[in-house]
Design a binder for these strands. Structure first.
Lengths: 354, 354
DNA sequence: TCATTTCTGAGGAACGTACCTCAAAAATTG
DNA sequence: CAATTTTTGAGGTACGTTCCTCAGAAATGA
């Protein structure tokens, strides 16, 4: 009737509790034959290890570290909030999170930060960073010391990171392309992509996916060369303004990175609001308000809350050397328009029970 | 350095462990003054109760019941699978789930099922059912016996259910309407809504949201009266075929409920594939394949995995009398097109660690 | 065969909390 | 003031697991 415990398995398998424990925790010193017998007993009884008890006994607490660039990007800020909130929840399961920021312009500082993390103090690291050689080496060294690392938001495929928590930028770009194409149905003209920097892998991949779709399925649309704003609103205002003035047949704008507010300001200044189909990425306070007011037609987003929780779950699983539930960790490419805009996340954070 | 425990609170507050325990678990026999002192100590130390240890000590196990209609609807089937998978995961935290089905045509049987659930055996119920008077009374009686209930997928607002796990049908309909309108940009004509039955609240609300948007923002599109298929593929084939033959200016099809396969078959038979913009609801094997092949342009969906996990989390929180994390339980209205179609969920279910 | 290595059993302490009992202390009553 | 009630303290056991030690059994080598 009641749930089987390790003692039940021991009895069922005809071995001692100690042996069951050795098998369950993959400790050495057990014959293949015995391991098999224990596993069969586990299957017969349908034993599921009680995680609560296991973690209690381990009395291990998990100190995770999240490293985000200290940029004023709204997406990073939103993600930081989501991480903080997820950490508050995870505190109940002995997981704490140190949220650190590094200056985005100097990867050496980031590398130094990573280098000073010690395996006995750090159960795992979630890192959001571009994959430069310096970062790559630092990540490899970190993993060499036995500290698991997940790439957050932007992948680091050549570092041997344990996991990538985020969405496929190429597919996200394709999605943006389809929406652009369909929203521009019947129109003929050019689409202007606007990015922070085309040195970032994410932007490159988004752009590639976007172009693929436009070329294959929407021959009436023509993607122009990407304008780079380097995250500066005034640069965006100037160069996008100039390009629009010089190109009368632009029908769509594709905002690959940040700049929602600057773009809205520009369009308002020039009396161009509503003249273009505008597609962007990531849901932030600015893109939310642009969606609401109709200056932005759709956003391709990843859910920061899911990102944060998934990162913590994966790190926890890695720290426990447990397999991860691929299904649950699969992040979706979200399409957000005004009508399915999720409600603003609440600011207050309840801790104590009622 | 390490996490504070009940003993630390006792010391900090200058009381005994027993008193701290009484306060934490809201047991009687403690003066207001002492309660306050303990709470202050808790705040000062930043104590967070270790849920794992707490539940272990309680040695409480949670038997949840999910009740789904025994229809052959693919969405219900998908949801059932998701619930089973979520339950396998939840087993590690002493939560088990009994997945029951009831004949969709007889609410009396459902009511009887609900009536026989006893509070000492059942920690919570997740119910997917239309809100008929019989169901309403049964749910009220259930809650009267102290068993928490969450409405799953389809809300039961007038039953006093503890929580609704699902998306707002009205907003989902609006989202469908916007996509229909935008995908039909430049076209003038009629849109044909197809539903299983317009007696279901979900269909009514979706239709209402859809109409609102079409009327307000897309004057070139005109929504026709809804065709009801009663879930029968042959009925769909016949009546939709007839209506399309009689109405040459249909530009869009809006599938409010099931019938993706039957609709695809009809369009294929008549050589009409690709002639209409088709928008549907819910991601199922049939709608997936329709999206992939291009017979379906977009799907408005709720993630069954999230639904299932959210339902279990909420029920668990209710059973523990803990507050629920609104942010995490907020389900999104997902827009799925071919480009952001999530990968097919894997069939196999890893249980044991590697 | 004996020595050696490899495996197994028995037992116990610990993790942080819940919940129980009994007695002592403090507050409240008449 | 004593009698009563209310509040508090001290100590214990239990939950299911992890992880430790040490001795003894079994398998393996020479």
């Amino acid at each position: 009737m009641t749930r089987p415990t390790v003692n039940d398995i021991a009895r069922e398998a005809g071995v001692s509790l100690a042996t069951v424990d050795r098998v369950l925790n993959a400790r050495p010193g057990v014959r293949e034959k015995t391991i098999l017998a224990v596993h069969q007993a586990i299957d017969r009884l349908g034993y599921v290890r009680d995680l609560a008890a296991a973690n209690l006994a381990r009395s291990r607490s998990y100190r995770m570290v999240a490293l985000l660039p200290d940029s004023d990007s709204q997406f990073v800020q939103t993600l930081a909030d989501a991480l903080t909130e997820a950490a508050a929840l995870a505190a109940a399961s002995r997981t704490e999170l140190d949220l650190l920021r590094y200056p985005p312009e100097d990867m050496h500082i980031l590398a130094a930060r990573l280098a000073e993390l010690r395996p006995d103090e750090t159960a795992g690291v979630a890192l959001m960073a571009p994959e430069t050689p310096i970062v790559r080496d630092a990540v490899r060294a970190l993993r060499g010391r036995g500290i698991p690392l997940v790439a957050l938001g932007s992948d680091l495929p050549n570092t041997g990171r344990d996991h990538f928590v985020g969405i496929d930028s190429h597919a996200a770009g394709r999605t943006a392309g389809v929406l652009m194409g369909r929203f521009c149905r019947g129109l003929k003209g050019r689409v202007l992509p606007i990015a922070d920097s085309m040195l970032l892998r994410d932007s490159i991949e988004r752009r590639r996916g976007f172009d693929e779709v436009l070329q294959a399925d929407f021959p009436d649309l023509d993607a122009m060369p990407t304008l780079e704003t380097h995250g500066a609103p005034d640069v965006l205002h100037r160069i996008v303004g100039a390009r629009l003035a010089a190109t009368p047949d632009v029908v769509g704008l594709y905002l690959l990175g940040s700049g929602h507010r600057a773009l809205a300001a520009l369009l308002r200044d020039r009396g161009l609001l509503g003249r273009f189909v505008v597609i962007g990425h990531e849901l932030t306070p600015h893109s939310r308000s642009a969606l609401r007011s109709g200056h932005l037609d759709a956003v391709i987003a990843q859910n920061p809350g899911h990102l944060a929780r998934s990162a913590l779950r994966v790190l926890r699983a890695k720290a426990d050397r447990q397999p991860i539930d691929e299904g649950q960790e699969q992040l979706r490419i979200e399409v957000v328009i005004r009508e399915n805009l999720p409600p603003e996340p609440a600011e207050d954070c309840q801790i104590r029970a009622a």
